[in-house]
Design a protein around this nucleic acid. Structure first.
Length: 553
RNA sequence: GCGCUCAUAGCUCAACGGAUAGAGCACUUGACUACGGAUCAAGAGGUUGCAGGUUCGAAUCCUGCUGAGCGCACCA
């Protein structure tokens, strides 16, 4: 019996009590059934009686008794206790619980998928770092979290489009081009220009690849560096993302918004909604109508459109392309943008509490020899995505960056991650998977297998370790759904760590295969089903994080 | 000055408003004639920054305070 089925059963029990006239309350739409931390509290616990006590006008324990009496009648339910202030602690038959192992094995890669966000069209934009330099550590966090989130949202039934917004227009690109030109000509980098080895490398790649570029007139030469530099930098970013296992469905060009007239059209649309006004020779969007600190300029007095105008056009583009929920993942230094971005949606007539979500991710701090390594694209002393991958590898990088809530700043100690990689929990999780593969290999060696589904005897999975494991496996779809709904992939990572720990304990306490001269028993077979189910969940979970599930390490 | 985010074990971090706040690492003590010891068992480690409030119940929600990071452009 899955948690979802049990939740439904509890709800039915409440309804029966109401229909029998024993309870006078509205039947709740959903009933929370959770895995108690303390196993003395049964396989599952529900607080439904506590929540219904007040509206029913009865003591919680009295309500609990009414529900418990009905649950006890259900097949598969072994015991129902009332504990504490009125919790219902439910214990299932071993066979009912054990059935889950077969069900998971048969569901395979699809186990964990759910429909919590069924059909919801989500546009997920992340990284979107300026193409004026390599992706730095902050962007790496978003690459890991954003890509994992996309996988999780898909597993939760959403229709997801991932997107990288390329700021390929504007002043920063001009500075980038000027920096390349200066480097190529052996001139000092202009003020506010970009420095760093990558500038020299790209400049060299351009002069090598475009013969005669240094003989062009100054302005033509600058334009050539702009075009080729942008091209090379974007290619470099795409390569890094690809190697990091991060996929974007769309690479969206800011320049295309300007070139196509989308920016002007967006302003017109916002004007029709009545939120655009003229003042001091500039054209403004009245974002203060929707919680922003101040109104924002769309077109400056000199006639130039602002970056904010492109943002507005970009939001409308996402909307026009079918997005119901546009999720922006921004760094903590951009938190001031939250209100103005949401105001764009509101000014366009959308629901700013539903159609747009802006997630703020806290910084990643890196330590080396106990000192913080500052990251600055302009200083040239930067930690790039390639550095991180070289140091700790894709799996460890993705896992480490995905296992914490984006709300918290995280500190990565380079010395620890480079010298003692086994301190990273990803190895703990991956090792559990390799051990399960080892069991499978050993079984083949012994010439035994778990038998057919019809031969599987779920009631033999009765020890506390097996029960713990089954309970944890049953949680997986709910964990994925929660991670998707909260847009927080770290729930999946933490769950996998817990699962790996349970597996290691199970391994210590339950023999899966016959030793020496022993015969293969039904208990062995049942446990092999459980091991395979566990392996399935671990592999599915790691896949959601974009981390490999190795067969050997 | 205004605003956003954060504050949990020595460290890095968890905890749909639920029961005794948990993992990993580090530390102490044990377990390898094994299905991979990259493991397990046990121990120690906490007034969840401080003070109030809300309720059956608060690390979680509300208010104030303290501390930290960040942001407050007709820049991009």
């Amino acid at each position: 019996m899955t948690p979802a089925e049990l939740s439904h059963a509890v709800q039915v029990a409440v309804r029966a009590a109401v229909e029998a006239g024993e309870l006078s309350v509205d039947v709740p739409e959903t009933v929370t059934v959770e895995r108690p931390k303390n196993r003395d509290h049964g396989d599952y616990a529900t607080n439904v009686a506590l929540q219904l006590a007040k509206p029913a006008g009865k003591p919680p324990r009295a309500v609990a008794e009414l529900v418990a009496a009905r649950l006890r009648e259900l097949p598969g339910v072994a015991k129902v206790d009332i504990a504490g202030p009125g919790f219902l602690n439910i214990t299932l038959d071993a066979a009912t619980q054990g059935e889950l192992a077969r069900s998971i094995v048969e569901t395979g890669q699809a186990y964990g998928r759910n429909e919590a966000l069924k059909g919801l069209k989500i546009n997920l934009e992340f990284v979107s770092a300026n193409p004026t330099g390599p992706i730095h550590i902050g962007g790496v966090r978003w690459a890991a979290v954003g890509d994992s989130l996309a996988r999780i949202l898909k597993a939760t039934g959403a229709d997801v489009t991932t997107e990288y917004y390329l700021n390929d227009a504007g002043v920063q690109i001009s500075k980038f081009a000027a920096s390349l030109q200066a480097a190529a000509n052996g001139r000092p980098v202009p003020a506010d220009g970009y420095v760093g080895e990558y500038i020299v490398d790209i400049a060299k790649a351009i002069t090598d690849g475009v013969p005669g570029i240094l003989e062009l007139p100054e302005d033509e030469q600058l334009q050539a560096f702009r075009v080729h530099g942008l091209q090379l930098m974007v290619a470099e970013i795409k390569r890094s993302m690809d190697e990091f296992g991060t996929h974007f469905d769309t690479w969206f060009s800011e320049k295309s918004l300007h070139d196509s007239g989308a920016v002007e059209k967006a302003i017109e649309r916002l004007r029709e909604q009545g939120h655009v006004f003229d003042q001091d020779g500039a054209i403004w969007l009245r974002t203060t109508d929707f919680g922003d600190d101040k109104d924002r300029v769309l077109i400056k007095a000199d006639g130039e459109t602002t970056y904010f105008a492109a943002d507005a056009a970009y939001y409308l583009s996402k909307r026009d392309r079918g997005s119901e929920v546009s999720v922006y993942m921004l760094g903590a230094d951009h938190h001031g943008y939250v209100n103005r971005l949401k105001a764009i949606a509101a000014c366009a007539g959308d629901d700013m509490n539903r159609n747009i979500e802006v997630k703020i991710g806290q910084f990643v701090k890196m330590l080396r020899d106990g000192e913080e390594v500052r990251m600055s694209k302009r200083a040239g002393n930067i930690i790039t995505i390639d550095d991180v991958v070289d140091w700790i590898g894709v799996d460890a990088a993705r896992y480490t960056l995905s296992r914490s809530s984006t709300d918290s700043t995280i500190t990565l100690d380079i010395n620890v991650l480079t010298s003692q990689t086994n301190e990273n929990p990803v190895y703990y999780v991956q090792y559990a998977h390799t051990r399960m593969c080892g069991v499978a290999r050993k079984a083949v060696q012994l010439g035994v297998d778990k038998g057919t589904a019809a031969e599987f005897k779920p009631e033999l999975l009765a020890t506390e370790w097996e029960n713990d494991m089954l309970g944890a496996l049953g949680e997986f779809p709910r964990v994925v759904a929660k991670a998707g709904q909260h847009r927080e992939p770290h729930h999946v990572a933490r769950y996998l760590e817990d699962l790996a720990g349970r597996y290691h304990r199970l391994y210590e306490n339950c023999q899966f295969l016959p030793k020496g001269d022993e015969e293969l028993t039904d208990t062995h077979r049942a446990r092999l089903w459980l091991v395979e189910a566990t392996k399935t969940v671990l592999a599915n979970g790691l896949a959601l994080l974009g981390v490999s599930a190795p067969e050997r390490m």
